[in-house]
Design a protein around this nucleic acid. Structure first.
Length: 106
DNA sequence: CGTATGACGAGCC
DNA sequence: AGGCTCGCCATAC
């Protein structure tokens, strides 16, 4: 079918949807997974373009910044993200996700 | 087509 | 440790 996974955004969404429940990936890892090694920033742009945070099937909350930090941004996103992750059993250490335990494999 | 923007990231001070 | 700058990438305008 026609090409839906051809655009950069869709490739990002596909990769994010592949993150297992209870685990997290960094923007940089997503970028690498879709073949754009230095496109971490663009990954963030793609997630930002998602419809309402609650009205998407893309588990955007499983994507965090390098080191496991939740990227600060306007709105209740960060709070919701942390809440959802904790709901999946993801452990935080000083405001940061413990990537050693919940990070995806590289 | 040039400039601005942003949910990044690594390096430097 | 914490904060700032610079480089990267894909869009928006």
């Amino acid at each position: 079918m026609a090409d839906r996974a051809d655009s950069f955004f869709d490739r990002v969404y596909a990769a994010v949807r592949a993150i297992p429940r209870g685990r997290v990936a960094t923007y940089g890892q997503i970028a690498r997974l879709i073949g754009v090694a230095r496109g971490a920033r663009a990954v963030g742009w793609a997630l930002r373009a998602l419809p309402a945070e609650r009205a998407t099937r893309v588990p955007w909350h499983r994507v965090v910044g390098a080191g496991g930090r939740i990227s600060p941004r306007a709105g209740a996103g960060p709070v919701l993200q942390r809440r959802r992750l904790r709901g999946e059993g993801v452990a935080f250490r000083q405001g940061r996700v413990d990537l050693r335990r919940h990070g995806i494999e590289r």
